[in-house]
Design a protein around this nucleic acid. Structure first.
Length: 270
DNA sequence: ATATGCACCTGTGTGC
DNA sequence: TGCACACAGGTGCATA
């Protein structure tokens, strides 16, 4: 579910809560694809001290002192929740990481998310090889250059491809297209250099603006404190099918593109 | 080499 | 109230 702003919000909160903390115990509620080699995973985590919680694309990276750690992908409904030690397990809880003063729950309704251990930096790097540049770190010029080829590709499909630019998902792809005045159905070859630079800047702008409000909760994303993201009130097109465009009042249109619900203003976006 | 469709799961909202 | 169906923030695969 979560895209870059939501994952980064969770990263910041987890990092603040866990840096320097030792994982004293782990409760494993369910073993399956989402927790590969469950007992082995638990054994690799217990007793480790958190050095940092980092992020690459939509992946959270738990780094332990000594170089090992694990990555976590929230996919559509994954959550890390910070809870008190006397917390009662809830439906869809998969893991509980227990520290001296609190605990972190890994909960995932749809089981698409996963955690996966790595033993050292080399193993971690091998898990991160196929991602494009980070949009909040890279310059607009760098991002614009990622949208040149393949020429026949749909703009929306390119934006969703994590190997092109990392971290953009369905919400921010649609929002960035609207803010750029570009239809998501445009082929890359039809974009001018100025338009590529515009959308690159809008990608950075919309991700930053959303991050400042702890992301977007349209359905069930929650941060580690169970709080909703505040950016939902500022969405221009996502989830607004049939509602008037905030700029020109034309009803927002919804189509399927790249297999995803895609929202745009037929008047403002060309 | 791209697009499409489906698969992975569960929950929720809608319309009959 | 029940039921059937569409749809959901992500990816990865098989097929066209």
């Amino acid at each position: 579910m979560p895209e870059l702003p939501e994952v980064e919000t969770v990263r910041r909160q987890l990092h603040a809560a866990l840096q320097g903390q030792t994982i004293q115990a782990v409760d494993l509620y369910l073993t399956g694809r989402e927790v590969p080699a469950g007992p082995l995973f638990v054994a690799g985590v217990v007793g480790k001290t958190v050095e940092s919680i980092d992020r690459r694309a939509k992946l959270l990276i738990w780094r332990f002192k000594g170089g090992s750690g694990f990555i976590g992908h929230l996919k559509m409904t994954g959550k890390f929740l910070l809870v008190p030690l006397d917390y009662t397990p809830a439906k869809h809880d998969r893991l509980k990481f227990i520290t001296k003063s609190s605990a972190v729950i890994w909960n995932d309704v749809r089981k698409f998310g996963y955690v996966k251990a790595f033993a050292n930096t080399t193993e971690l790097e091998s898990l991160l090889t196929s991602y494009g540049p980070e949009p909040l770190i890279s310059s607009a010029e760098q991002l614009a250059a990622c949208l040149l080829t393949p020429k026949t590709r749909l703009l929306k499909a390119a934006l969703l491809d994590q190997t092109v630019i990392a971290g953009i998902g369905n919400i921010y792809a649609d929002e960035a297209c609207f803010l750029s005045g570009l239809r998501p159905t445009r082929r890359l070859s039809t974009l001018t250099a100025a338009q590529r630079l515009t959308i690159a800047n809008k990608i950075k702008n919309v991700l930053s603006a959303s991050l400042a409000l702890n992301g977007t909760t349209s359905n069930n994303y929650l941060d580690v404190n169970g709080e909703r993201g505040g950016f939902v009130n500022f969405l221009q097109v996502y989830g607004r099918a049939g509602e008037p465009c905030r700029t020109c009042s034309t009803p927002i249109k919804k189509i399927t593109l790249a297999g995803r619900g895609t929202h745009y203003c037929p008047q403002c976006q060309k």
